[in-house]
C-alpha cells in the first residue's frame, strides 16, 4: 500500500468521522428519547416503518460506519497485534463488507420489513 493510499484512507476516515459525529448526535438524542418513552417493537417500528427520512438517515449512518470502523480497526491490528500487509488489509475489507451488509439489512428490516 503506497503512502498516498494510506493518506487517502486517513482522509476517508476523518470525513466519515465528521458524518458520524452528526449521525451519532442525532442517534444519541433519539435513543435516549425512545428509551424514555418505552422501548417496544411497536414503538420503534412505528417511527421507522415506511419513513423515507429514517431510511436515508440510517443508510448514510451505515455507510459512514462501514468506512470508519475498518480503517480504525486496521490501526489496532497493525500496532497491537502486529498484523501487516495483505492479511490485515483483507480482514479490514471483510469487516467493512460485514458492517455494510448487516447494516443495510437492519435498515431494510426496520423501514420495510
Amino acid at each position: 500500500m503506497s503512502a498516498a493510499t494510506q493518506a487517502r484512507l486517513w482522509y476517508a476516515q476523518r470525513v466519515s468521522a465528521m458524518v458520524l459525529a452528526l449521525c451519532v448526535l442525532v442517534h444519541l438524542a433519539t435513543l435516549i428519547y425512545a428509551t424514555r418513552h418505552g422501548l417496544t417493537a411497536a414503538a420503534i417500528l412505528g417511527r421507522t416503518r415506511g419513513s423515507g427520512l429514517a431510511a436515508l438517515f440510517y443508510a448514510i449512518f451505515v455507510i459512514a460506519c462501514a468506512v470508519h470502523v475498518p480503517i480504525g480497526l486496521a490501526k489496532v491490528f497493525e500496532e497491537w497485534l502486529r498484523w501487516r500487509g495483505r492479511i490485515m488489509a483483507a480482514v479490514s475489507l471483510a469487516i467493512g463488507a460485514v458492517i455494510l451488509f448487516l447494516g443495510m439489512r437492519a435498515v431494510y428490516a426496520v423501514v420495510i420489513g
Binding site: 500500500m1 493510499t5 494510506q6 493518506a7
Partner: peptide
C-alpha cells in the same frame, strides 16, 4: 511531502 505521508509518516500519529 511524499516522504512524510502515510503510515511510516505523519498519518500514523495518534
Amino acid at each position: 511531502l511524499r516522504a512524510v505521508a502515510g503510515d511510516a509518516g505523519c498519518h500514523a500519529c495518534h
